[in-house]
């Protein structure tokens, strides 16, 4: 990693940490101006992160040559980019309070990882692997967004049902907006994750031949895909909306997050970059 890249990454990390603190503070002292400022700080962080990744891309022979720092950074970058894109279109600034900590978490994890190690063995590298990785990351980032919106929906719903919207209720986005974000997250996330997974499966069939290995990450991803597919189906076909969808997507997300951590620390997997 070049020193310029390190500086850019440090700047991105600092911005993201500041934005996270700002968002959380805005929830705590209930001032929307702080959330507004945090959005701009996060946007600056996003810019620095983009530059870091571009710089890394220029210096490496190809996308898949990235170290684990870059994989985690791309996760953070995708979540931040999708959130910011949505943010500038809708007035849901406080969603940042739920998204920014995740971005920060990914960046901190990335900072803790060495970047020199080549994670994908050279014989596996190729456009299909890249496609698989990029689409899977984008799809999962959108699910994070859908779940964060779900968590906020649950809070706002509770406040409105108890007839006490108060200051917090005024600060949180409207139920309609949050439900729309949840809907969009699922609607975009699923079609991105699907070809991402197919790409991976096709590639694995070529490389490994034979049946799929019982890789925990593969099983985990398949479960994510099935459950989110189920949720999207219920949403579009059955008409599940609002609080049920919000709580289900949030709980699902928590379960997957926990199992991902268990896989990361307790199992051996070919997907060993996070």
């Amino acid at each position: 990693m070049t020193s310029l890249e390190t500086t850019l990454f440090a700047l991105a990390l600092t911005c993201c940490a500041l934005a996270t603190v700002g968002y959380l503070l805005s929830l705590l002292i209930q001032k929307i101006i702080l959330a507004k400022a945090s959005t701009w700080i996060l946007a600056a962080g996003f810019l620095f992160l983009t530059l870091t990744l571009l710089r890394a891309a220029v210096h490496s022979s190809g996308w898949v040559n990235f170290g684990s720092r870059h994989f985690l950074s791309i996760y953070a970058w995708a979540i931040a980019g999708i959130y910011l894109g949505l943010q500038f279109r809708t007035k849901t600034r406080l969603l940042g309070a739920f998204i920014a900590p995740f971005i920060l978490l990914f960046l901190i994890a990335a900072a803790g990882q060495g970047s020199g190690k080549n994670l994908v063995p050279p014989e596996w590298q190729g456009w299909l692997t890249t496609l698989h990785l990029v689409l899977a990351i984008a799809g999962e980032a959108l699910f994070v967004l859908a779940s964060a919106a779900g968590a906020m929906f649950m809070i706002q719903n509770r406040l409105l049902k108890h007839k006490k919207p108060g200051k917090m209720g005024r600060l949180l986005p409207s139920l309609g907006d949050l439900d729309r974000i949840n809907h969009l997250g699922l609607l975009w996330g699923f079609p991105l994750l699907t070809p991402g997974m197919i790409g991976g499966a096709v590639y694995a069939a070529f490389v490994w031949g034979g049946p799929w290995p019982a890789d925990p990450k593969v099983i985990w991803s398949f479960a994510v895909w099935i459950v989110y597919g189920f949720l999207l189906h219920q949403r579009l076909a059955i008409g599940w909306k609002g609080s049920r969808m919000a709580s289900l997507s949030f709980v699902t997300f928590l379960l997957f997050l926990m199992s991902a951590l268990v896989i990361r620390f307790c199992c051996t997997t070919v997907h060993n970059f996070i």
Partner: peptide, 21 residues
């Protein structure tokens, strides 16, 4: 001047909190 102080405006504010627009 932040919050409505009439019943009808309070209803409108709530509607906005539920539907957004």
């Amino acid at each position: 001047a932040a919050n409505p102080v009439s019943v009808s405006f309070a209803a409108v504010e709530l509607a906005k909190k539920i539907f957004g627009t």
